[in-house]
Design a protein around this nucleic acid. Structure first.
Lengths: 126, 126
DNA sequence: AAGCTTAATGCAACTTTGTTGCGGTAAAAT
DNA sequence: ATTTTACCGCAACAAAGTTGCATTAAGCTT
């Protein structure tokens, strides 16, 4: 199976998620870490961390992959049914700590929901 | 500016959206039309039709682009704040005619929402 | 119906994101 | 210290989508 070791690369990558509640584009991570590690390594570490419930991923409206820290996730269950919000001004994406009410729809059994919201954050709307 | 002409290619492409309420992957359209038109043409027609409010697009959880017929859209305003649903069995994606209640979140002005639901459709859950 | 104007198309080459295979490296375990 | 095995870098690849440019064909005009 494989156990994720806390290598330098893993620690470095995790540190980038620390100072912020924002999500980060996989592509941006790769650009930011270009001097320190290979893009293949970045993708593989992200995969592993996601499987362990440390981070979670989602797709933005343009199809690019975002990653963000998890709160209360494990390898068994990903607790990422919260909306993700992107500000049209600063382009930042954040996880909103809001409970999403999944609608019940006749003839459909809904098991999961991904909600991507777009608008203005408080810093940009002032 | 450019006006979309009803060429053979456009008619053919539109006909594929007629018999169904399902969304179609751009990639599948290209594969299906391989003998009749170039993939560049497919992408360009899809772009034009979306700008005119005839179809709308969204990204699936894997980042691939889906297209579906619009109901009540114009070039000015896209009325696509409805959830999209993908069945985990048959993989089909459909537009759900349900009003989504966009949550109000402190410090955020929400202007648009993309909701992607996953589960089982009625045909597959029986 | 012939000619003209311009949108639409095909093709090839390219860009970007993400993946895979494999040889080499380094972290743990013994 | 040696062995085991996870991890990493590199290069090559794959797939989705875009761009430039020459050619074709709609739709007007007359």
């Amino acid at each position: 199976m494989g156990i994720t070791r806390k290598t330098k690369a893993v620690k470095k990558l995790l540190s980038l998620f620390e100072p912020t509640v924002s999500a980060i584009l996989a592509v941006d991570l790769i650009a930011q870490l270009k001097e320190e590690m290979n893009k293949t390594t970045v993708y593989r570490i992200l995969d592993r961390l996601e499987n362990e419930g440390v981070i979670h991923s989602f797709s933005g409206s343009n199809g690019l992959k975002w990653y963000a820290k998890c709160t209360g996730c494990s390898s068994d269950k990903h607790n990422d049914i919260h909306p993700h919000f992107q500000c049209t001004s600063c382009k930042k994406v954040t996880c909103l700590p809001v409970e999403i009410k999944i609608p019940t729809v006749k003839n459909y059994t809904i098991e999961n929901a991904a909600v991507f919201l777009v608008g203005k954050c408080s810093e940009c709307s002032s």
